[in-house]
Computed example of a mutant assay.
Amino acid sequence: MQLFSDTSFFILAGILSIPAIIMGLKEVSIRFYGFGVTLIFLWLAMGHNLRALIWLAGFTFGEYAVIRIYLPLREKYGRNKHIYHIFLALSILPVAANKVLTAVGNPYHMFAFLGISYMSFKVIQIVIEIYDDVIHEVRPFDYFYLLWFFPTVMSGPIDRSRRFNADLEKVPARSEYIEMLGSGLSRILQGLVYKKVIGTGFYQLMQWFGLKAGFSHALIYMYCYGFYLFFDFAGYSSMAIGLSKIFGINTPENFNKPFISKDIKEFWDRWHITLSHWFRDFIFSRVTMGLIRKRFTRNKLVIATIAFIINMGIMGCWHGLTIYYILYGLYHGILLSLTEIYQKKSKFYKKHKKDRWFCFLEWLITFHLVMFGFFLFSGRFTQLLLR
């Protein structure tokens, strides 16, 4: 069973949502029932694949052991960077191994299970925030539910442990749950239209007109792929958010009209928000602070440029160790760096940044730069180059 794709998923999700709705209307906690439903969908989504389930269990319990061992060490030794780096590396190791093995065909089927990338983000966040002295306790139920929560396990949105746990602890009043339910059903319907109708339409146009030889067909592919990617992924995210609400969880937003962005920085504040904000908080800001502390340079623009390229380069590698994903990450790292330099240094920008004609021009340039980035991401660009 494919989550948010197969008809069987929607039928079963609808049936299993009924008890959750009744519990929500009666102001009864849904957390334990939701966890049971999550286990059902994990089993079905894995296709009864025993090997994948064993790797999933090994990953989940292994990462929990990393967290449980690090917690008392953090309390005993404080902000010891050597200990922290060891446990951070251990939390990153499974997803790094998954990316490397996937690049070589993964002959041993190691870490080849649904959702490892998105679960890893949550584990890494917990380890980092233990080091930051923000998290002092990780309860087993909360941890497993956070990682396995079925609406978001496959492709996000990426929730943060403290925010998720706050929702678990809270039992909304009837009136609040009715509002969540109405919003959730609306988001599911919106997601279905985005993914199944509009996204499918752009995908068919891409297949019919974009795969032929020639520059014009490459352009058709580029723009159709960009819109397909948005409506498919935004549609999935909307359905995940909607279904989460039915089970009492206010999963964060993932998209906010990204195609109206006036520059690349604004785009990454609107596109795949939970991913871009995760990278901003846990990679970009820490690289920046590290370079400042080490007095690498006093030039803040140089520091920002290095941090942007490292940040987006890692994001590209996270998508996969292929040339087109790495190029996509570096491309956006360079664009973000150039945008930062231009906005900080250009007198022309500072003079005209509020003018309507200039805002329109910014939007137009940004839109096409974003679409070319999606062209890189699709792999079609490198495929055409290598012909």
Rank of each mutant, 00 (worst) to 15 (best):
T7G: 15
S8V: 10
A13V: 12
S17H: 05
P19R: 03
I21H: 00
M23L: 15
M23C: 12
G24E: 13
L25C: 12
V28P: 07
G34R: 00
G34Q: 02
V37M: 08
L42W: 03
W43H: 13
G47H: 02
G47T: 08
G47W: 00
L56W: 03
T60S: 15
I67D: 09
P72V: 05
E75H: 11
I86A: 06
I86R: 05
L88V: 04
L93R: 08
A96G: 10
N98G: 09
Y108H: 08
H109E: 11
F111D: 06
A112T: 05
L114G: 03
Y118C: 07
F121T: 04
I126C: 10
I128C: 08
V134C: 08
I135M: 09
F141Q: 11
Y143S: 02
F144I: 08
I158L: 01
D159S: 12
N165K: 14
V171T: 15
R174D: 14
M180E: 04
L181P: 03
G182R: 11
S183V: 09
Y194V: 04
K195P: 08
K196T: 11
T200V: 11
W208P: 03
F209L: 15
F215Y: 05
F227E: 04
F230W: 10
G235C: 09
S237R: 01
S238M: 07
A240T: 09
N250W: 01
N256E: 13
K257R: 11
W268G: 12
R270T: 13
H272R: 15
H272D: 07
T274H: 10
S276L: 10
D281I: 11
M289E: 08
R293T: 01
R298K: 15
K300E: 00
K300Y: 00
I310F: 04
G313Y: 01
G313W: 00
I326T: 03
G333D: 00
I334Q: 04
S337T: 06
K344P: 06
K344T: 12
H352A: 10
R356D: 10
L361Q: 08
M371C: 11
F374M: 03
F381C: 13
L384I: 13
L385Q: 10
